[in-house]
Design a protein around this nucleic acid. Structure first.
Length: 587
RNA sequence: GCCCCCGUAGCUCAGCGGAUAGAGCAUCGGAUUUCUAAUCCGAAGGUCACAGGUUCGAAUCCUGUCGGGGGUGCCA
């Protein structure tokens, strides 16, 4: 589409006396393709040319020679509309889509640049829950998108693996161990211990003090405390990785908060050396001019460091190690101020790369009445973010969500199977579809919006959903199987020509721009939205079996249509892959 | 008090400066001898929270109001 706009803007530029870039920025898409494929609103030209927009449009339509690649110039009131030559359009739009050499839509514009993606960052000793999943799924999708554009991506899992809460766990563990010495520790047990501690601490004096003592032991390197810390961390990590695998996610790095324990002093010294920190009310802070922002606390009056201190040390470390072009923090809205402060301190420290750090924020998760009938109080005890009352055990576990989705998908797979192949792979398919539904549900909305989690919506397998995209992929694959023959590398699409085909081809051709926009806005929902539109366009085409019989006696037309099917399939598979959703061949 | 985000169809959401504001769910009605009906077509459903402003043109940009959520120096 861009190349068509280039042709037009160059043809129009001398007539309008405007640079072609300016003309190119004026184009719009007509509401209905029967009006044309590219439109030019003539309103802004009225003043300059001293004529009414409608007059300008009609004058231009007669003055302008039909540019190469177009079949019609028309006007609708003040709009000058151009229709692309259908015969030539298909070969232009679909060239390279099926290329095996370079995936369609991929590019090298990010070559040589590194993007650090901080995402997921769960807390040790707490199972992954549905409210962690947004950061995980959005972050992973962004990683894939950046890689697709040639960037080097360093995905970092900034684990919440340090804090006074470890002392609490140790107190609880010691009691628990005495009662059941042979029981293994896994994440479920860890959570029980955490809940137990808070239950006990409510009734027993001195338990909090014991927890503090254990944490002091841990900080001073006491062997038993360190052993327990490592045990808790290891077991938690095992549980996290099991779920990441179901999403097909692998982190380049697990670098938790604890990693920065011995690096914060140096960071604080560098800050002090810049003369931007001061003591206020006993604490070490960095203040901001005009009190635009509350000061950033770096050290408590008792000498211990804070969350921001750790993130500052981490930012320095990341830049030192990777010299990133961008450092993106996929973290909930709630921490907006925290990141503004951290980035503000980095800027005051004189790091010019501070401007390349960005908080990729996303909305809160609320539970619908089919999940929890009453609202639970928030728990921000530790971690990059938490919602839901973990302490009291009110939490929706991610594993449960995935299992329920998978089971529901399995029923549907078995009910609808029309091939033995499908039944034989029912379990695999159910997993693909169930997980696909959950992932899509997370990516279907713009990040900043709060999300209402309901079982009904998350487990939706119809309509605008992951399974709808997967089903379309299966149908496309089925057509290719039915065709049965190997498709040649080069296909002549010029026998295509119906409007439905044109719409499908236009949708296919839009893919690269969609990817660029998704990356520019750090917004995976741009892709999910697009894929729905693409599938909707194809399904409309596909349902019309009378005029759009794909496999027919007409050889050239059949080849062109099967080729178009393969183009859609390719783009859909690529898009789904970028979102982290598998594309089944049958279902 | 101050700061940030969000108010679009009954519900969940797209659209974020251009032509008649679009999907899905739910409701109602249709389409299957024929490449997968987990699909498709149609009907119904909207003072785009409100009020000003900018503009040839505003759901979209600016200001204010109201409503919802979040944050706000010793949690993360």
């Amino acid at each position: 589409m861009n190349s068509y706009k280039n042709i037009l803007s160059q043809a129009l530029s001398p007539l309008l006396g405007l640079p072609s870039e300016e003309v190119a920025a004026m184009f719009v898409t007509p509401p209905d393709s029967s009006m044309g494929d590219i439109g030019l609103p003539c309103f802004p030209l009225a003043k300059k040319l001293q004529q009414s927009p409608a007059q300008i449009a009609s004058k231009l339509s007669t003055q302008l020679e039909l540019p190469e690649g177009f079949s019609k110039i028309s006007t609708t009131g003040p709009y000058l509309n151009f229709t692309i030559d259908r015969q030539k359009m298909f070969n232009r739009f679909l060239a390279g889509v099926r290329s095996t050499a370079k995936p369609f839509g991929a590019s090298e514009i990010g070559k040589g640049q590194t993007v650090v993606m901080d995402y997921s960052h769960p807390n040790i000793a707490k199972p992954l829950a549905i409210h962690h999943v947004r950061s995980t799924i959005i972050g992973a999708a962004l990683c894939r998108l950046y890689k697709f554009l040639g960037y080097t991506v360093e995905g970092v899992n900034h684990l919440g693996d340090w804090g006074t809460n470890f002392g609490q766990l140790m107190v609880s563990y010691k009691r628990y161990e005495a009662a059941q010495p042979d029981q293994e520790v896994n994440i479920t047990r860890l959570l029980e211990m955490y809940i137990q501690f808070h239950k006990d601490a409510g009734n027993e004096e001195g338990l909090d003090d014991q927890a503090r003592e254990w944490f002091v032991k841990l900080e001073s390197g006491d062997p038993e405390a360190v052993r327990l810390w490592e045990l808790f961390r290891e077991e938690s990590l095992n549980a996290f990785k099991k779920l990441y695998r179901r999403f097909g996610i692998e982190f380049e790095h697990y670098i938790g908060e604890s990693f920065f324990n011995d690096k914060m002093e140096a960071t604080l010294e560098r800050i002090a050396a810049k003369g931007i920190s001061e003591i206020s009310e006993g604490a070490l802070v960095v203040k901001f001019e005009d009190d635009k922002m509350p000061p950033c606390l770096l050290r408590k009056s008792d000498g211990s460091t804070l969350y921001a201190t750790r993130d500052l040390a981490a930012a320095e470390y990341r830049y030192e190690r990777w010299h990133f072009a961008k450092c993106l923090y996929v973290v909930a809205n709630q921490q907006e101020l925290h990141f503004r402060q951290v980035f503000g301190v980095l800027e005051k420290m004189g790091y010019d790369w501070a401007k390349n750090c960005e908080h990729i924020k996303f909305g809160m998760l609320a539970f619908g009445p089919d999940v929890f009938p009453t609202e639970e109080e928030d728990d921000t005890a530790f971690g990059r973010r938490t919602t839901g009352s973990t302490r009291r055990g009110h939490i929706v576990f991610l594993e449960e969500v995935l299992d329920r989705a998978r089971d529901k998908a399995r029923d549907l797979v078995v009910d609808n199977a029309r091939e033995d192949e499908v039944l034989q792979h029912a379990d695999e398919l159910a997993e693909m579809i169930g997980v696909g539904a959950i992932v899509f549900n997370e990516l279907a909305q713009r990040r900043v919006k709060d999300v209402l989690f309901t079982w009904d919506k998350a487990l939706n397998l119809h309509g605008d959903s992951g399974p709808y995209l997967q089903y379309t992929h299966a149908r496309l694959s089925s057509v290719l199987r039915k065709y049965g023959k190997e498709l040649p590398e080069e296909i002549d699409y010029s026998t295509l020509g119906t409007e439905a085909e044109a719409e499908v081809a236009k949708a296919v051709a839009a893919f690269p721009e969609i990817i660029e926009r998704a990356v520019r806005e750090n917004e995976p929902s741009v892709v999910s939205d697009y894929l729905l539109a693409l599938c909707s366009e194809f399904n409309r085409f596909f349902t019309d079996k009378v005029t759009h019989r794909i496999i027919s006696d007409e050889e050239a037309l059949t080849l062109a249509r099967v080729g178009l099917v393969d183009c859609v399939r390719t783009v859909l598979a690529t898009g789904l892959g970028l979102l982290g959703i598998q594309a089944p061949e049958r279902m």
